[in-house]
Amino acid sequence: MLLMTASQIRGLPVVTVQGGEDVAEVRDVIYSPEAGRLVGVTLNKRGFLAGRSRDVLPAEAIHAIGQDAVMVLDESSLVTPEDAPEDVGHPATERNVLEDDILTEGGASLGKVADLVLLVGSSGEVVGYQIEKPGGERGYIPLPAQLSVSGVALVVPNMTEEFVQDDLVGLGGAVDEFRTRLGLT
């Protein structure tokens, strides 16, 4: 199990365990803010200037995500949009959260969304967001961070401001404490 950001996962080759072939590359990372998990990825074809692939990869069909590849059992794990869950087959591309302004309920900006942080192993749990603070430094806020999310903004509880971490090491502990404070555990 390891922590990876969505930008580390994007661009990884999708490799079949049985075939040893790189059948595609990760394009979009699609996650559920509510469930706090990865629901799937869209794909690019392999090749320097290659573009979008029609097929998608739902999270259930992912065998493992590692630092160098996303593993699937075989090519049948890649499905057409019609055979995939709606969120994966037809992702709401206008809800791309990168660069989203992070606003507290009280109206203060904590910065912008720089990345998503996931705990990968055999499943993909979303642990938090990597943010770019107003001053330009990097920080991390734990999930469940958002009350609502759109393609332009993330609204978070006021309390989130106290939980901004400087590095990933602090994020794990912050997640548990944050959830306790929110009354979720």
Partner: peptide, 20 residues
């Protein structure tokens, strides 16, 4: 030019699913 074209073709982002 190649780098720009590649970046555009590769695209990609982090997409939140629609709330229930």
């Amino acid at each position: 030019a190649f780098v720009i074209i590649r970046r555009k073709r590769r695209g990609g982002g982090v997409i939140a699913t629609k709330d229930k």
